[in-house]
Design a protein around this nucleic acid. Structure first.
Length: 457
RNA sequence: GGCGCAUUAGUCUAGUUGGCCUAGGACGCCGCCCUCUCAAGGCGGAGAUCGCGGGUUCGAAUCCCGCAUGCGCUACCA
């Protein structure tokens, strides 16, 4: 079984394309087949080298590895269409000789007699001769589909400048690369009969075609920039995990059963099959993706999560790359936030108080106004000062005891302390946070806010 | 216009050969519980006459026909 992903490098990797890549990869890998990366850069004016690199990086990030491709080579190369132009030309000329194609120099849309062997003047393109009849195929996802050939025009194979069109290039490539299964977007359904005709003209059997439903925006329209982010790389920047992206992609148009939602790569590989792919277009739902990302974050083990968080902490200026002490602190803090973040990018804001000094957010100053908060701050400072070791369970014991003795509700007693230690009314759990901040810094922050509370009256 | 494909709650879907579906799960939404904040978690709730209209059948989300809507293709773009 040989499958390929064939992006055209005209820009970033689109999330829709990434999903197509995933389905191809899943089928190839789950069947022990071969996965090929082929670059469709026949549109020279729009294709760039940077885009090729970016697409490969995105695929690697998702964990979709390929056995053959432009960078790793392979027995069926080259894997870039611009390097295969002579192959296409030979194929077109072969068809010409067999009378299955003809030269035509007419402008598009113009009715012409070239088909009958009376080519017009000017630069000549090579057109495929579509014979009468019906072209049908059994789509692995959509089921049986058929077209009357009268609805298919004689399409161009080779442009008058000698370059191949998409139809010629894909078919020739898929034939010469021995591709057995083509999974692609449903927007290609109408292209399929042309390509099947080409396969037959070349004396080859068409591969298995599987057209997957398109991904659309929340309004049901094709996904575009105005729906939000469509570049896969943006999702990495936003703090999404590749595990979550893959899980979400997989479930957007496929299901394992009636209830399994969170799945890892292994489960996907063990269960993926074309016959459980849905036929309806799927709406891209950021909400669900984000929830799913949170689920995958919770399932990561601590050191792994810390490592993935590092670039975001560095980016926020909270630590420098590779700093051992900071990493240790981060690793200790991970259990406090793993259930509190849905995106990796949310961590810096939640953990900033561990890495730099803080002052209470101005919008929460009312928490320390009045007599009770002031007494809490004073009393907590006293009790914590003598605490040894400065560990969360002991801190909790001390502070709960304090609240009880003072006749205060835990909430009322702890919120002023939270504001003092973390600078915010929302934070990771207080006692554990205090332990990580450390005794000295904790006391310093409490004293400072105690003084502030006195000023506020 | 022609051709093709699709159509289960706001969203993703289960439903493979018609009866166990008084349509299951998940996101989101609402409420309660837990609780040091925020989350996470637990429990419960609202939300779908299975696009519409005809058939076939004792019985249809599941089969047939028509219609509507959406999307795709109809390029010397991919």
């Amino acid at each position: 079984m040989r499958l390929r992903f064939a992006p055209s490098p005209t820009g970033y990797l689109h999330i829709g394309s990434a999903r197509t890549a995933l389905y191809n990869w899943l089928l190839a890998r789950s069947a022990g087949g071969t996965f090929i990366l082929r670059i469709e850069d026949t549109d020279r004016s729009r294709s760039t080298e940077e885009a090729i690199l970016a697409i490969m990086e995105d695929l690697r990030w998702l964990g979709l590895d390929w056995d053959e491709g432009p960078d790793v080579g392979g027995p069926y190369g080259p894997y870039r269409q611009t390097e295969r132009m002579d192959i296409y030309r030979r194929a077109a000329e072969g068809l010409l000789e067999e009378g299955k194609a003809y030269r035509c120099g007419c402008r598009t849309g113009e009715k012409c007699r070239c088909r009958e062997g009376r080519p017009s003047e000017g630069p000549q393109a090579i057109r495929f001769r579509v014979e009468e009849g019906e072209t049908a195929f059994d789509d692995a996802i959509m089921g049986p589909i058929s077209f009357d050939n009268s609805s298919i025009e004689d399409f161009v194979l080779l442009r008058s400048d000698g370059t191949a069109t998409y139809h010629l290039a894909v078919v020739v490539d898929d034939v010469s690369m021995a591709v057995t299964h083509v999974i692609r977007g449903a927007d290609h359904i109408s292209n399929t009969p042309k390509q099947i005709l080409l396969y037959r003209a070349l004396g080859k059997e068409p591969p298995v075609f599987a057209h997957m439903p398109l991904t659309v925006g929340s309004d049901g329209k094709p996904l575009s920039k105005r729906h939000g982010d469509v570049a896969l790389s943006r999702y990495r920047e936003l703090g999404f995990l590749p595990e979550a992206m893959i899980n979400y992609f997989a479930l957007l148009g496929w299901s394992l059963d009636d209830s399994t939602t969170i799945m890892d790569r292994r489960t996907l590989l063990a269960n993926f099959s074309l016959d459980r792919v849905s036929r309806n277009p799927g709406n891209w739902d950021m909400n669900k993706l984000t929830w799913m990302n949170g689920q995958h974050i919770m399932r990561l083990d601590g050191d792994d999560l810390a490592a993935r968080l590092e670039p975001f902490m560095v980016g926020a200026g909270l630590m420098s790359s590779g700093d051992r002490d900071s990493m240790k602190l981060l690793e200790r803090a991970v259990p406090l936030i793993r259930e509190r973040i849905k995106l990796l990018s949310e961590a810096p804001a939640l953990l900033a108080f561990l890495f730099r000094e803080v002052s209470p957010e101005t919008s929460s100053l009312e928490l320390i106004k009045g007599e009770a908060p002031l007494r809490v701050l004073e009393e907590a400072e006293r009790r914590l000062a003598s605490l040894e070791p400065f560990a969360a369970p002991l801190i909790e014991e001390a502070l709960r005891g304090m609240a009880a003795e003072m006749g205060m509700k835990p909430r009322d007693a702890f919120q002023p302390l939270r504001l003092a230690v973390t600078g915010s009314r929302v934070s990771p759990p207080l006692f554990e946070s205090m332990e990580l901040v450390g005794k000295e810094r904790c006391l310093k922050r409490i004293r400072r806010v105690r003084d502030l509370a006195r000023e506020l009256g």
